[in-house]
């Protein structure tokens, strides 16, 4: 991945995460997740009744590596809320069970009390 490609991928990522309140970079799609960990985060978002943008990294190898470089995080899925990297499957599930995720979403005006 040369630097130039990286910038192009980073620009695309920045655009996606600023144009969409909630973005999930995942393997597969929300309707057809291709990996258990991606499916688990989709489940959390569905449980909260939240619309979100799902982006399948399997169909774009440049993005698959670029998103890992962008977030300095070696795995997929990756959840972004209001442009901020929240975490992967473990952290999202921890935050969901502790209520921290619900609070974050409410604070950011994405979830009614």
């Amino acid at each position: 991945m040369s630097l130039i490609d990286n910038n192009e991928v980073f620009d695309r990522i920045r655009q996606d995460i600023s144009n969409n309140d909630i973005v999930l970079y995942m393997k597969g799609s929300a309707v057809f997740p291709q990996c258990g960990y991606s499916a688990a985060v989709v489940q959390v978002l569905n449980n909260l009744g939240l619309p979100f943008r799902d982006i399948d990294v399997l169909s774009d190898p440049g993005l698959r590596q670029g998103i890992k470089d962008f977030a300095n995080w070696p795995t997929i899925p990756q959840l972004y809320i209001k442009g901020e990297f929240i975490g992967g499957c473990d952290i999202v599930r921890d935050m969901y069970s502790s209520g921290e995720l619900r609070k974050l979403l409410t604070d950011k005006g994405l979830l009614q009390e």
């Binding site: 890992k68 995080w73 070696p74 795995t75 975490g87 952290i91 921890d94």
Partner: peptide, 22 residues
């Protein structure tokens, strides 16, 4: 928590997501 996990990933430099699927 993110940075704590990053510290562990750093210790596992290159393995996570590669030889170590999950």
């Amino acid at each position: 928590r993110l940075d704590q996990h990053r510290m562990v990933f750093k210790a596992l430099e290159g393995h996570v997501g590669e030889t170590l699927h999950a």
